[in-house]
Protein backbone atom coordinates (compact mmCIF):
# COMPACT_ATOMS: atom_id res chain seq x y z
CA UNK A 1 0.00 0.00 0.00
CA UNK A 2 2.86 2.35 0.83
CA UNK A 3 4.43 1.82 -2.58
CA UNK A 4 1.09 2.49 -4.14
CA UNK A 5 0.72 5.74 -2.23
CA UNK A 6 4.19 6.83 -3.23
CA UNK A 7 3.59 6.30 -6.93
CA UNK A 8 0.29 8.10 -6.58
CA UNK A 9 2.28 11.00 -5.08
CA UNK A 10 4.55 11.13 -8.12
CA UNK A 11 1.60 11.16 -10.42
CA UNK A 12 0.04 14.00 -8.49
CA UNK A 13 2.08 16.60 -10.34
CA UNK A 14 -0.07 15.82 -13.37
CA UNK A 15 -3.20 16.23 -11.39
CA UNK A 16 -4.31 19.36 -13.26
CA UNK A 17 -4.17 17.58 -16.64
CA UNK A 18 -7.39 17.33 -18.62
CA UNK A 19 -7.91 13.58 -18.20
CA UNK A 20 -6.06 13.29 -14.91
CA UNK A 21 -9.22 12.84 -12.93
CA UNK A 22 -10.40 10.02 -15.10
CA UNK A 23 -7.02 8.29 -15.16
CA UNK A 24 -6.61 8.55 -11.41
CA UNK A 25 -10.08 7.27 -10.86
CA UNK A 26 -9.54 4.31 -13.16
CA UNK A 27 -6.12 3.51 -11.79
CA UNK A 28 -7.33 3.87 -8.25
CA UNK A 29 -10.26 1.60 -8.84
CA UNK A 30 -8.17 -0.97 -10.66
CA UNK A 31 -5.36 -1.02 -8.18
CA UNK A 32 -7.30 -0.90 -4.96
CA UNK A 33 -9.92 -3.24 -6.25
CA UNK A 34 -7.38 -5.68 -7.65
CA UNK A 35 -5.15 -5.64 -4.61
CA UNK A 36 -8.06 -5.86 -2.28
CA UNK A 37 -9.40 -8.87 -4.10
CA UNK A 38 -5.99 -10.49 -4.14
CA UNK A 39 -4.93 -9.86 -0.57
CA UNK A 40 -8.02 -9.41 1.50
CA UNK A 41 -9.00 -12.82 2.81
CA UNK A 42 -12.03 -11.33 4.57
CA UNK A 43 -13.51 -11.15 1.13
CA UNK A 44 -12.61 -14.76 0.50
CA UNK A 45 -14.74 -16.04 -2.31
CA UNK A 46 -15.65 -19.39 -1.15
CA UNK A 47 -16.83 -20.76 2.11
CA UNK A 48 -14.02 -23.26 1.99
CA UNK A 49 -11.40 -20.53 1.96
CA UNK A 50 -13.15 -18.84 4.86
CA UNK A 51 -13.22 -22.09 6.76
CA UNK A 52 -9.52 -22.58 6.11
CA UNK A 53 -8.82 -19.07 7.42
CA UNK A 54 -10.81 -19.67 10.61
CA UNK A 55 -8.95 -22.92 11.18
CA UNK A 56 -5.65 -21.15 10.72
CA UNK A 57 -6.77 -18.45 13.11
CA UNK A 58 -7.74 -21.00 15.71
CA UNK A 59 -4.24 -22.51 15.55
CA UNK A 60 -2.63 -19.08 15.98
CA UNK A 61 -5.07 -18.22 18.76
CA UNK A 62 -4.19 -21.30 20.77
CA UNK A 63 -0.49 -20.49 20.57
CA UNK A 64 -0.53 -16.70 21.04
CA UNK A 65 -3.76 -15.65 22.76
CA UNK A 66 -5.31 -18.52 24.67
CA UNK A 67 -2.98 -18.15 27.66
CA UNK A 68 -4.81 -14.98 28.74
CA UNK A 69 -8.06 -15.13 26.81
CA UNK A 70 -8.84 -18.83 27.32
CA UNK A 71 -8.81 -21.66 24.80
CA UNK A 72 -12.19 -20.71 23.43
CA UNK A 73 -11.86 -16.98 23.99
CA UNK A 74 -14.00 -17.23 27.13
CA UNK A 75 -11.58 -15.08 29.14
CA UNK A 76 -9.50 -15.94 32.20
CA UNK A 77 -10.15 -14.67 35.70
CA UNK A 78 -7.44 -14.08 38.26
CA UNK A 79 -7.65 -15.60 41.71
CA UNK A 80 -8.79 -12.20 42.95
CA UNK A 81 -11.71 -12.34 40.56
CA UNK A 82 -10.55 -9.60 38.20
CA UNK A 83 -9.91 -10.10 34.51
CA UNK A 84 -6.64 -11.65 33.49
CA UNK A 85 -7.64 -11.55 29.87
CA UNK A 86 -11.16 -10.49 28.93
CA UNK A 87 -13.60 -12.73 27.07
CA UNK A 88 -13.48 -12.26 23.31
CA UNK A 89 -16.86 -13.79 22.61
CA UNK A 90 -18.54 -10.64 21.29
CA UNK A 91 -15.72 -8.29 20.32
CA UNK A 92 -15.87 -8.93 16.59
CA UNK A 93 -13.24 -8.93 13.87
CA UNK A 94 -12.74 -5.15 13.99
CA UNK A 95 -11.43 -5.31 17.57
CA UNK A 96 -8.93 -8.02 16.65
CA UNK A 97 -7.81 -6.16 13.55
CA UNK A 98 -7.22 -3.05 15.70
CA UNK A 99 -5.50 -4.71 18.65
CA UNK A 100 -3.30 -7.04 16.62
CA UNK A 101 -2.87 -4.69 13.66
CA UNK A 102 -1.42 -1.92 15.88
CA UNK A 103 0.78 -4.34 17.83
CA UNK A 104 -1.12 -3.83 21.11
CA UNK A 105 -1.84 -7.54 21.18
CA UNK A 106 -0.24 -9.81 22.06
CA UNK A 107 0.80 -7.92 25.18
CA UNK A 108 4.45 -8.16 26.12
CA UNK A 109 3.70 -7.88 29.84
CA UNK A 110 0.77 -7.07 32.08
CA UNK A 111 0.41 -3.36 32.78
CA UNK A 112 -1.91 -0.41 33.12
CA UNK A 113 -2.45 -0.40 29.41
CA UNK A 114 -1.29 -2.31 26.32
CA UNK A 115 1.01 0.07 24.47
CA UNK A 116 1.23 0.36 20.72
CA UNK A 117 4.33 -1.53 19.60
CA UNK A 118 5.83 -3.36 16.66
CA UNK A 119 3.27 -5.56 14.92
CA UNK A 120 3.85 -9.27 15.59
CA UNK A 121 1.51 -10.97 13.13
CA UNK A 122 1.51 -10.39 9.39
CA UNK A 123 -1.58 -9.34 7.47
CA UNK A 124 -2.67 -12.87 6.65
CA UNK A 125 -2.25 -14.01 10.26
CA UNK A 126 -4.11 -10.96 11.58
CA UNK A 127 -6.94 -11.68 9.19
CA UNK A 128 -6.99 -15.31 10.29
CA UNK A 129 -7.16 -14.33 13.98
CA UNK A 130 -9.92 -11.83 13.21
CA UNK A 131 -11.86 -14.42 11.24
CA UNK A 132 -11.57 -16.90 14.10
CA UNK A 133 -12.61 -14.46 16.84
CA UNK A 134 -15.53 -13.31 14.67
CA UNK A 135 -16.90 -16.86 14.82
CA UNK A 136 -17.00 -16.75 18.65
CA UNK A 137 -20.00 -14.45 18.73
CA UNK A 138 -21.33 -11.18 17.40
CA UNK A 139 -19.42 -7.90 17.01
CA UNK A 140 -18.42 -5.43 14.32
CA UNK A 141 -16.63 -6.65 11.22
CA UNK A 142 -13.52 -5.02 9.78
CA UNK A 143 -14.83 -1.83 8.09
CA UNK A 144 -14.74 -1.50 4.34
CA UNK A 145 -12.29 1.00 2.97
CA UNK A 146 -15.00 3.23 1.52
CA UNK A 147 -16.19 3.93 5.07
CA UNK A 148 -13.01 5.71 6.11
CA UNK A 149 -11.15 6.62 2.93
CA UNK A 150 -11.35 10.23 1.78
CA UNK A 151 -9.53 9.56 -1.45
CA UNK A 152 -11.05 10.91 -4.59
CA UNK A 153 -13.32 13.40 -2.85
CA UNK A 154 -14.03 16.80 -4.40
CA UNK A 155 -12.08 19.61 -2.68
CA UNK A 156 -15.18 21.48 -1.58
CA UNK A 157 -16.79 18.33 -0.30
CA UNK A 158 -13.62 17.40 1.58
CA UNK A 159 -13.31 20.88 3.12
CA UNK A 160 -16.84 20.68 4.38
CA UNK A 161 -16.18 17.20 5.76
CA UNK A 162 -13.01 18.39 7.52
CA UNK A 163 -14.74 21.39 9.04
CA UNK A 164 -17.59 19.20 10.35
CA UNK A 165 -15.12 16.56 11.51
CA UNK A 166 -13.21 19.17 13.50
CA UNK A 167 -16.30 20.02 15.51
CA UNK A 168 -17.12 16.34 16.12
CA UNK A 169 -13.50 15.73 17.08
CA UNK A 170 -13.45 18.64 19.54
CA UNK A 171 -16.74 17.55 21.08
CA UNK A 172 -15.98 13.83 21.45
CA UNK A 173 -12.26 13.12 21.26
CA UNK A 174 -10.17 16.06 22.55
CA UNK A 175 -11.17 15.63 26.18
CA UNK A 176 -8.83 12.63 26.31
CA UNK A 177 -6.73 12.80 23.14
CA UNK A 178 -5.90 16.55 23.26
CA UNK A 179 -6.87 19.20 20.71
CA UNK A 180 -4.18 18.12 18.24
CA UNK A 181 -4.51 14.43 18.98
CA UNK A 182 -1.24 14.51 20.93
CA UNK A 183 -2.65 12.29 23.66
CA UNK A 184 -3.46 12.80 27.32
CA UNK A 185 -3.36 11.14 30.73
CA UNK A 186 -5.95 8.77 32.15
CA UNK A 187 -6.24 7.58 35.77
CA UNK A 188 -3.89 4.99 37.26
CA UNK A 189 -1.13 5.14 34.68
CA UNK A 190 -3.45 4.82 31.72
CA UNK A 191 -3.33 7.22 28.84
CA UNK A 192 -5.17 8.22 25.72
CA UNK A 193 -2.52 7.61 23.06
CA UNK A 194 -1.36 10.02 20.42
CA UNK A 195 -3.65 9.51 17.44
CA UNK A 196 -1.73 11.40 14.81
CA UNK A 197 -0.24 9.40 11.94
CA UNK A 198 -2.45 6.42 12.74
CA UNK A 199 -3.98 4.43 9.87
CA UNK A 200 -7.50 5.61 9.01
CA UNK A 201 -8.74 2.05 9.35
CA UNK A 202 -7.41 1.73 12.87
CA UNK A 203 -8.97 5.05 13.94
CA UNK A 204 -12.27 3.86 12.54
CA UNK A 205 -11.96 0.54 14.34
CA UNK A 206 -11.00 2.23 17.60
CA UNK A 207 -14.15 4.36 17.49
CA UNK A 208 -16.21 1.31 16.60
CA UNK A 209 -14.87 -1.03 19.28
CA UNK A 210 -13.65 1.26 22.11
CA UNK A 211 -10.36 -0.44 22.95
CA UNK A 212 -9.08 -0.45 26.56
CA UNK A 213 -10.47 2.54 28.50
CA UNK A 214 -11.89 4.25 25.42
CA UNK A 215 -15.62 4.64 25.00
CA UNK A 216 -17.37 2.80 22.19
CA UNK A 217 -18.70 5.20 19.58
CA UNK A 218 -21.22 2.95 17.92
CA UNK A 219 -22.80 3.86 14.61
CA UNK A 220 -25.82 5.04 16.55
CA UNK A 221 -23.65 7.51 18.47
CA UNK A 222 -21.46 8.72 15.66
CA UNK A 223 -22.76 7.59 12.25
CA UNK A 224 -20.23 6.24 9.73
CA UNK A 225 -20.12 9.50 7.74
CA UNK A 226 -19.25 11.41 10.93
CA UNK A 227 -16.51 8.91 11.75
CA UNK A 228 -15.13 9.55 8.29
CA UNK A 229 -15.31 13.30 8.98
CA UNK A 230 -13.21 12.90 12.14
CA UNK A 231 -10.67 10.86 10.17
CA UNK A 232 -10.62 13.54 7.47
CA UNK A 233 -9.95 16.21 10.12
CA UNK A 234 -7.07 14.20 11.60
CA UNK A 235 -5.62 13.68 8.14
CA UNK A 236 -5.87 17.42 7.56
CA UNK A 237 -3.96 18.03 10.83
CA UNK A 238 -1.23 15.67 9.64
CA UNK A 239 -0.91 17.43 6.30
CA UNK A 240 -1.28 20.98 7.63
CA UNK A 241 1.98 22.91 7.70
CA UNK A 242 3.12 24.29 11.05
CA UNK A 243 1.79 27.78 10.34
CA UNK A 244 3.06 29.13 13.63
CA UNK A 245 6.46 27.41 13.88
CA UNK A 246 7.77 24.60 16.07
CA UNK A 247 4.99 23.31 18.27
CA UNK A 248 6.91 21.29 20.92
CA UNK A 249 4.71 18.23 20.80
CA UNK A 250 1.40 20.11 20.57
CA UNK A 251 0.85 19.67 24.29
CA UNK A 252 -0.39 23.17 25.08
CA UNK A 253 0.73 25.61 27.79
CA UNK A 254 3.04 23.27 29.71
CA UNK A 255 5.56 22.91 26.91
CA UNK A 256 5.11 26.60 26.05
CA UNK A 257 5.97 27.51 29.63
CA UNK A 258 9.12 25.40 29.54
CA UNK A 259 10.21 27.14 26.33
CA UNK A 260 9.41 30.57 27.80
CA UNK A 261 11.70 29.89 30.75
CA UNK A 262 14.51 28.09 28.97
CA UNK A 263 14.70 30.14 25.77
CA UNK A 264 12.68 33.28 26.49
CA UNK A 265 14.42 33.97 29.75
CA UNK A 266 17.60 31.93 29.29
CA UNK A 267 18.77 33.81 26.22
CA UNK A 268 18.28 37.35 27.61
CA UNK A 269 20.00 36.32 30.87
CA UNK A 270 22.93 34.89 28.89
CA UNK A 271 23.12 38.21 27.05
CA UNK A 272 22.93 40.08 30.36
CA UNK A 273 25.94 38.12 31.61
CA UNK A 274 27.74 38.95 28.40
CA UNK A 275 26.90 42.66 28.55
CA UNK A 276 27.87 42.98 32.19
CA UNK A 277 31.15 41.17 31.56
CA UNK A 278 32.14 43.77 28.96
CA UNK A 279 32.89 47.06 30.60
CA UNK A 280 34.12 50.15 28.84
CA UNK A 281 37.66 49.45 29.96
CA UNK A 282 39.78 48.76 26.95
CA UNK A 283 41.42 45.50 28.02
CA UNK A 284 41.18 42.83 30.64
CA UNK A 285 44.85 43.25 31.53
CA UNK A 286 44.42 46.90 32.38
CA UNK A 287 41.38 46.02 34.40
CA UNK A 288 43.33 43.57 36.51
CA UNK A 289 46.21 45.98 36.93
CA UNK A 290 43.84 48.53 38.42
CA UNK A 291 42.25 46.06 40.81
Amino acid sequence: MRLLNRSAGRLSRHRRGPIAGLVVLLLGLLLTGGLYAAFSPAQADTAAEQEELVKEGRELFLVGCAFCHGQNGEGVLTQGGSQYGPALTDVGAAAVDFQVGTGRMPMAQPGAQAPRKEVVYNERETAALAAYVATLGTGPAIPDEELYSTEGMEEDELNELVSRGGQIFLANCTACHNFEGSGGAMPRGGYAPKIRGVDAKHIYEAMLTGPQSMDTFSDGNIPPEDKKAVIAYLEMLDEQPGYAGFSFGGLGPVSEGIIAWLVGLGVPVAFAVWIAAHTTRSSKKKDEAQA
Binding site: L170, T174, N178, G183, A185, A192, G252, V254, E256
Partner: peptide, 11 residues
Protein backbone atom coordinates in the same frame (compact mmCIF):
# COMPACT_ATOMS: atom_id res chain seq x y z
CA UNK B 1 -19.73 21.41 25.99
CA UNK B 2 -16.13 20.85 24.85
CA UNK B 3 -12.84 20.47 26.63
CA UNK B 4 -9.36 19.32 25.69
CA UNK B 5 -6.79 17.16 27.46
CA UNK B 6 -3.83 19.24 28.53
CA UNK B 7 -6.02 22.19 29.51
CA UNK B 8 -3.58 24.27 31.45
CA UNK B 9 -3.31 27.95 32.20
CA UNK B 10 -0.20 29.84 31.15
CA UNK B 11 2.78 29.00 33.34
Amino acid sequence: SKVTAGSQPDW
